[in-house]
Design a protein around this nucleic acid. Structure first.
Length: 205
DNA sequence: GTTCCGATTTTCT
DNA sequence: GAAAATCGGAACA
């Protein structure tokens, strides 16, 4: 119920990123159903966005998903971490939304177990999914989901949730060259966000 | 083959 | 806060 359909993602990535806040990400995995409230996202455009994997305009095995149909999953590795993105806009247009953090809603024991495979020191609930790589660890998301689409059959999808009271915009985190426009969105005051403070970019395009 | 890099995480001071 | 650790893919030779 309340499953976000293809049409939801067939829009500008900034709009999708903003409206994804408060939605519930659901992962069906080994007889368990993991849920997280999306609290932090970033929008990425295509060839005109220097922070985008599609910036070169060249299609490679790594970025091909970005031109796929809206609702397609794009997973790729940065600094030894898998990052989870949802493709936006029509097929043929490259853009996507990165899920940067979710607030765990249940199955905390399982999320903790998955996180501890990489970092045995993790203990606090707020450290389970407060970063794009931490979230994929906890939710057992890997490359096998790349080029799949959001749906119950692939074991990962998004359901409508409760819209946040207030949203903060900031520059995207960690990118070498950002756009002037602020394309990171997070739920104001939420303690499961990766970096509550405003982050200044290394450089502008 | 080798080198270099990054939309990060972790650990150390 | 700063620095090290991490690894798959691209680019070069």
């Amino acid at each position: 119920m309340g499953l976000l359909a293809k049409a939801f993602f067939d829009r500008d990535p900034a709009v999708v990123a903003r409206e994804l806040l408060g939605a519930t990400l659901v992962r069906q995995w080994r007889e368990r159903r993991l849920r997280g409230r999306i609290v932090e996202t970033e929008a990425y455009y295509g060839t005109d966005d220097p922070a985008s994997r599609a910036f070169s305009g060249k299609v490679t095995a790594l970025n091909a998903a970005m031109w796929e149909a809206p609702g397609t999953i794009m997973v790729y590795m940065v600094h030894a971490n898998w990052l989870f993105n949802i493709v936006t806009q029509p097929r043929g247009v490259s853009s996507a939304v990165l899920i940067r953090a979710v607030e765990p809603l249940d199955n905390f024991d399982l999320l903790l177990t998955e996180r501890r495979k990489r970092n045995p020191a993790v203990a606090a609930r707020r450290d389970l999914c407060n970063g794009p790589g931490k979230f994929t660890q906890a939710f057992a998301i890997g490359r096998e989901l790349n080029l799949q689409s959001l749906s119950k059959s692939t074991g990962i999808w998004v359901e409508r949730g409760s819209a946040p009271q207030d949203v903060t915009e900031s520059h995207r985190v960690g990118v070498t060259r950002d756009l002037r426009r602020k394309l990171r969105y997070y739920v104001s005051g939420n303690s499961f966000v990766s970096k509550p403070a405003t982050v200044t970019p290394k450089g502008f395009a």
